[in-house]
Design a protein around this nucleic acid. Structure first.
Length: 559
RNA sequence: UGGGGCGUGGCCAAGCGGCAAGGCGCGGGACUUUGGAUCCCGUAUUCGGAGGUUCGAAUCCUCCCGCCCCAACCA
């Protein structure tokens, strides 16, 4: 079934928008926004949000803005801003001219703050952070009002102005909304609107030393941009009353906030804090380490934007906590690459195979199909000669039950080449197999079995024509499905998440493969030319995902 | 009696009073020059639990149970 033909699963957000359109709440307009804070790289969880934000806008003929929530200069940087834009584009979404920053609105926000003070809805407080925490009360008990809560508006106005001028130290004063210190919703217990931060901002430089809090900046930014549907994750559900309160006090355009459950993926962690820690502790090589759930990591690993978008569509949108198995993500990649990736032969763990009855020095160029799923991909020629390499796993002596591969006396097909019969092995002093010997059947050229039953087909490369390469095989970063629930999440890191194979032999057609090119190495999996470390003459391939391996299951299950 | 959410098969997830979609996974089979792909078939008498309303409930009502989020001058 094609992607277009598949019906999109229904979801409650679409239903809400449909209802708004039906009642004319926003005049039929649909404007959404993706509002990342530039304090880390985007991950697969963000991809879900991006697909929803941009997807809903697209579906309803509206638009989606990219807005950086840059209200905390101490944690944000231009590196992250650049990476985020790169990743959103790579995923396949376009914000057109609608690139915004919360910092674009600092002046307007300030003016609105003044308006709220004048209306008696906000005041400058002088409680320290600790005092404020004490005054806030607990989950089950209401809080106490600050002694500065009833300070005259004029005084707050003067203080706020001086805060802005930099007359006070960090932490000395805050601007707070005057709402309800007894509310069961802690967000409504006089939330801080501005705090003093004498830190330069990546966009506004040193123009400001007071910065708006998320709640004060977010809804107003949405309003200014004419956003209609402010879609976010469940943890903001408690913030919605505050989001609504600010907008109502100001009497400005009022978007609808809608919350959905964030994505949890098995065998990985998703919090930016933990991902940052992995990077800083050197437990991975960087934000784009192929084992990371970041878009940069997935991309380097070999994931396609199409596969990720398909995944985001398949996981659905709901409000229930979830833990999606990585198997689904992997399935999406396989399905995409099976259709699109050209096939190549690559021997990861080489074992010499000598064709005794094939003339020394003779070479044949055998045609091989590039992609059986796509005739338009054509074919290439693969050199064959007397000495070849096959996979170490493809020879066993003695052979286990149901083993279709090579073993003494057994017959097997070498893909696109000839059928060979194993005539013997040469062992090293320690008993390990050094070399396998065989005879080929000249009549089976191209792999034609001539009616004979040959169950196994192996991939191979010519020893003298193949080129060396490095392969990096990845497994999940964590061994536990829910690392977050382990006593210590880092203790459950997978020590085998990376295996490096340095003596691989790949067919010559792979020589000029450009960075990020993806191939299916027949019988093994989908591999991607590493964008960072691969060089012509020193190729490095990342295994994005293995092929389904029925034999591995049989063998593991004891036959 | 803090507040806010959520509970449908191993994992996601449709369903919105008419008698349990779909996907992943898993099991079996067909086919196969990738033990790949593809194709069949199977996989919840039951929707957290108990009552109730109704001819009829996963869908409505009541109570109960469980899980998640909130006490940053983070987002």
């Amino acid at each position: 079934m094609s992607e277009e033909a598949r019906e999109k699963p229904s979801n409650f957000i679409r239903d809400i928008i449909l209802e708004h359109n039906r009642t004319g709440r926003f005049g039929g307009r649909v404007v959404t926004r993706f509002p990342p804070e530039p304090n880390g790289y985007l991950h697969i969880g963000h991809a879900k949000a991006i697909c929803i934000d941009f997807g809903m806008a697209q579906e309803f003929g509206g638009r989606c803005h990219l807005r950086f929530d840059d209200t905390n200069p101490t944690k944000e940087s231009q590196e992250y801003v650049d990476a985020i834009m790169r990743d959103v584009r790579w995923l396949g979404f376009d914000w057109g001219p609608h690139l915004y920053h919360a910092s674009d609105y600092f002046e307007q926000l300030y003016a609105w703050a003044v308006q709220l003070i004048k209306a008696g809805k906000a005041y400058v407080d002088e409680l320290t952070a600790e005092e404020m925490r004490e005054h806030r009360g607990t989950l089950t008990e209401g809080g106490r009002e600050s002694p500065h809560r009833s300070r005259p508006a004029e005084e707050s106005l003067d203080l706020l102005e001086r805060m802005r001028r930099g007359e006070f130290e960090e932490g000395a004063k805050t601007l707070r909304a005057r709402i309800d210190m007894t509310s069961g919703n802690l967000n409504l217990r006089d939330p801080v609107m501005y705090r003093i931060r004498k830190a330069p901002h990546q966009r506004t430089g040193d123009a400001w030393c007071i910065y708006p809090m998320y709640d004060w900046a977010h809804g107003q930014s949405d309003s200014i941009e004419g956003v209609t549907h402010s879609i976010c994750t469940l943890e903001y559900e408690d913030h919605r009353p505050l989001y609504d309160w600010y907008l109502d006090q100001l009497g400005v355009h009022h978007p609808q906030q809608i919350e959905f459950a964030r994505l949890n993926l098995s065998h990985t962690v998703m919090s930016k804090r933990k991902l940052l820690e992995l990077v800083n502790a050197g437990l991975v090589t960087g934000w784009d380490d192929p084992r990371m759930p970041t878009l940069a990591g997935l991309r380097r690993r070999g994931y396609t934007p199409e596969a990720i978008r398909d995944f985001c569509e398949r996981i659905g949108v709901a409000k229930a906590d979830n833990l999606v198995q990585v198997a689904l993500l992997e399935h999406c990649l396989r399905e995409d690459l099976n259709r699109r990736a050209e096939r190549r032969m690559a021997v990861l763990r080489p074992l010499r195979l000598v064709v005794e009855n094939y003339p020394e020095g003779k070479v044949e160029e055998l045609p091989a199909i590039n992609n059986p799923e796509d005739p338009s991909a054509g074919s290439r020629r693969v050199p064959w000669s007397r000495v070849l390499y096959i996979e170490q796993d493809d020879f066993r002596d003695p052979p286990p039950p149901k083993y279709f591969r090579l073993s003494p006396g057994a017959e097997v097909r070498l893909r696109y080449a000839y059928i060979v019969r194993c005539t013997g092995v040469t062992r090293a002093a320690d008993g390990t197999v050094a070399e396998v010997r065989c005879e080929y059947d000249p009549a089976s050229r191209g792999g034609d079995s001539g009616g004979r039953r040959v169950k196994g087909t192996l991939h191979w490369v010519s020893a003298s024509h193949s080129i060396g390469a490095e392969a990096r095989l990845y497994d999940t970063l964590f061994t536990a499905p829910r690392p977050d629930e382990a006593e210590e999440w880092k203790s459950v890191l997978n020590p085998k998440s990376l295996e490096v194979l340095r003596s691989c032999r790949v067919e010559p057609a792979l020589a000029g493969a450009p960075a990020e090119a993806r191939f299916q190495f027949e019988r093994q999996g989908y591999f991607c030319v590493d964008a960072r470390d691969s060089r012509p003459g020193a190729l490095v391939f990342n295994r994005a995902v293995g092929l389904r391996d029925t034999w591995a299951k049989i063998e593991k299950g004891g036959g």
